[in-house]
Design a protein around this nucleic acid. Structure first.
Lengths: 247, 247
DNA sequence: ATAAGGTATTACGTTACGTTAGAGTCAACT
DNA sequence: AGTTGACTCTAACGTAACGTAATACCTTAT
């Protein structure tokens, strides 16, 4: 499917689709040879998810964070979104009640406190973000931490040592090209390491790399080992994922 | 009431209130002597209205346009907003249905077309703006036009002559101060003129003046008589309204 | 009179696109 | 084969609705 088709189907502008591509929120496979974006069925589903989250007031950054979380599963998300939408409907009902009261109040039929005049809306913060955070927030870290806690003391120390070794090695070579042999070898170790404590597909691996630069909590910790390491790792991870994907 | 109080009551940030003041959407009477914004009960009601429109997806510019329309009445607005909110609830119900279908589809229980996957959302345009336009849009002009049409040919020509005369006079003196005697005299004629074809309170008069510079359709036509005339008129009209208000 | 909390005014930053502008693509029609 | 019209791309600047300091004044409680 081409942009226009998708655009009309989903009721969003073409520019919006371009934008989502730009920020890496929804990147179709642009095979067309002449650079045209071609959207697959899976892309459509992802777009649907994005729009649900958007309706619920999430920022694109948060949406990306959530959907890139290694534990993200569409079916789970649908259930949660369903709950949130029902909640939102409740809030709208409240607003309708508030209107009714206000009308009555205007007619002098009832009294109304100032507080009651604003029941139903609260623009000060997104009421659904907390729930989302519980489910997906900081999940990559949580998941890893949980697994690590289950290990024996010896295993933990051994893992930590390995962790530090890989980071230091990567930091040393961070000025090489991300697709160089040495970089790919070391980033491969990283992939193996991660799969000891979690379960990462190549796509998730690539997504995680992107998060290293998008999410400053990661960037900060990673760049402790060397300025610019996060970016280097993201690039290397992307290359690694793509190379091993096709084979 | 001070900003913080209002802010907490309505669930909007202080910055938002400042912003609404800046753009002239909600300007409290700042009597406090030290420049503090003091919000009245009427201001609260206006804020409530604003938030309702916002929830329905109107831009602040549109909201301002609507609420400054000479025919705007709060009670009417409440009824219409009520209808729109009920409509919005329907759309959310559609989205919930869409989610349910998607879940079933994922389980392989039912088939689903691409179109069905996006039923409920349509971000391409605000569905309520048309309705609003019918009620309030271009209303100042419409109202005047309607009245003018009812007049005899002679009366119409006479009015048009008067109209042109006033504009030309105003254009001549547009470099005077808006609160000078001559400016106030001529703008007074304009107020009298407008009330021949409509029914303008001093507040509506002031609001109309603001619209001369906010709405470029007005600005363009007015500035035909002289560059900067629209701004001059707005200022003069504001002074006129305030001076005659208190007496 | 001094600290704590509220408020005001700049003023620059940010998000999520809108809006041209300039140029290449594709399918259909003469 | 040439042209047209609908579609696509990237690049880049514009906009709306605030967020986020920074700096300074006001007010009241101690």
């Amino acid at each position: 499917m081409h942009v226009k088709e998708v655009s009309e189907l989903a009721g969003v502008s073409i520019r919006t689709l371009h934008h989502y591509d730009e920020i890496g929120l929804l990147t179709p496979k642009k095979i067309n040879g002449s650079g045209y974006r071609i959207y697959s069925e899976a892309d459509l589903e992802r777009l649907q998810q994005i729009l649900f989250f958007k309706e619920l007031g999430f920022s694109l950054k948060k949406i990306k964070e959530i959907m890139n979380s290694s534990s993200y599963k569409q079916e789970e998300a649908l259930e949660i979104q369903r709950g949130m939408l029902i909640d939102k409907r409740k809030r709208i009902d409240k607003m309708i009640q508030t209107i009714d009261k206000t009308i009555q109040n205007k007619k002098g039929e009832i009294q109304m406190t100032d507080k009651e005049k604003f029941e139903g809306f609260d623009f000060s913060h997104n009421p659904y973000e907390d729930e989302a955070r519980k489910k997906w927030g900081d999940h990559v870290v949580d998941e890893s931490n949980a697994k690590i806690k289950q290990l024996s003391k010896y295993e933990r120390e051994s893992l930590e040592k390995e962790f530090n070794d890989i980071y230091r090695k990567l930091a040393e070579i961070r000025h090489e090209s991300p697709d160089s042999d040495i970089a790919q070898e070391k980033i491969g170790l990283w992939y193996v390491y991660l799969n000891k404590i979690g379960n990462y597909s190549l796509d998730a691996f690539k997504g995680l790399g992107q998060m290293y630069v998008d999410d400053e909590r990661f960037t900060k910790n990673i760049d402790k080992f060397g300025e610019g390491l996060a970016k280097f790792m993201r690039d290397a991870m992307a290359v690694y994922a793509e190379r091993n994907q096709s084979e």
